[in-house]
């Protein structure tokens, strides 16, 4: 028994360095830790070497953490769902004196976590994957929304351009409308002749006026007591110079009264006449003259 203990002590003391480094497997580690309880000298040796091992993490190269890691880590931890979950895990977790949660041995006794907590860690990793997938989907959605928003922005820009063009057109048209609506400036009566019945049985009378303004030369014809039109009949106005008869347009009547407006190039005409035409399609007089007057040059 004594020899066995001596052998065991020597064997265990040889394991001190491997134990503090973390190179024992689980079985060896448990055996060694059990032995530590009964060998103070060995325990003190472990404590002394452990202090050396504690410096090893400082031997690594200093690496700058990724940008934004602090926010990601702390926001993850301080999210209420994680806090509640881990508090729940905490109740079911028993601290044990082992350094490794795997099947290996340990460097030094230290409070770490039981298998339950390792499971929580695995679950947590799964959640990490979930959140990574969720984050990816959200990011993709954000990109799609961004593209969509960009397209909308483009459409809006296009519509705004069209609106600007339309506004310009509206302004232009409003300008024209304003011009049209304005009282005619510089209207000058060039000629005004009374239209007389062509025959004695016609009681109609009329007035032909030629006016000139900045838009051109206009013929205004108004007649009253005209015969009643039948069917497709229409009254037609002619400007005549010699044998050349130029149609100035047709008009219908209401209660025997009618009028028309005609713009033409200034030219010397000698006669103006209104005929009763079978329809509005003729380019030369076909019916009888109702009213007529000579135009003095």
């Amino acid at each position: 028994m004594n020899n066995d203990n001596q052998y065991k002590k020597s064997d265990m003391h040889d394991m001190i360095e491997m134990y503090v480094l973390g190179g024992l497997n689980q079985e060896e580690q448990q055996r060694f830790e059990a032995y530590l309880q009964e060998d103070e000298q060995c325990r003190l040796a472990v404590e002394e070497l452990r202090e050396v091992m504690d410096t090893l993490p400082f031997a690594v190269e200093d690496v700058a953490p990724p940008k934004g890691m602090k926010n990601r880590v702390l926001s993850h931890i301080l999210t209420p769902s994680h806090t509640e979950q881990t508090i729940s895990d905490d109740r079911g977790t028993t601290p044990i004196v082992v350094e490794k949660s795997s099947d290996d041995q340990t460097v030094k006794p230290s409070v770490v976590y039981s298998t339950q907590e390792d499971k929580a860690w695995v679950q947590h990793k799964g959640k990490n994957r979930f959140w990574r997938v969720a984050t990816t989907l959200v990011a993709a959605a954000a990109v799609i929304i961004g593209v969509y928003a960009s397209n909308l922005r483009g459409e809006i820009d296009s519509l705004q351009q069209q609106l600007a063009i339309s506004s310009t057109q509206v302004n232009s048209l409003q300008g024209k409308l304003a011009t049209v609506s304005m009282p005619t400036q510089g209207l000058k009566v060039d000629k005004a002749v009374k239209l007389n019945p062509a025959t004695a049985d016609i009681v109609a009378q009329g007035l032909a006026t030629i006016v000139i303004d900045d838009k051109g030369t206009h013929l205004l014809v108004q007649a009253d007591n005209l015969p009643k039109l039948k069917g497709k009949e229409a009254f037609q106005v002619w400007l005549i110079k010699g044998d050349v008869k130029q149609s100035a347009g047709t008009f219908l009547t209401q209660d025997g009264t009618g009028a028309m407006y005609y713009t033409f190039q200034p030219e010397d005409y000698d006669t103006i006449a209104i005929t009763l035409e079978p329809d509005k399609q003729g380019d030369q007089p076909r019916g009888p003259i109702v009213l007529a007057a000579e135009i003095q040059g």
């Binding site: 200093d62 890691m69 990601r72 993850h76 931890i77």
Partner: peptide, 29 residues
């Protein structure tokens, strides 16, 4: 701890995951 984690896992994302789990345990335990 990030430098130490990176020294072991040799990957930036994995090292961040280690740090996150570390501080989760610090917070809860």
């Amino acid at each position: 701890v990030y430098s130490f984690a990176y020294r072991i896992v040799q990957d930036t994302m994995a090292a961040e995951e280690v740090v996150q789990e570390l501080f989760l345990r610090v917070w809860n335990h």
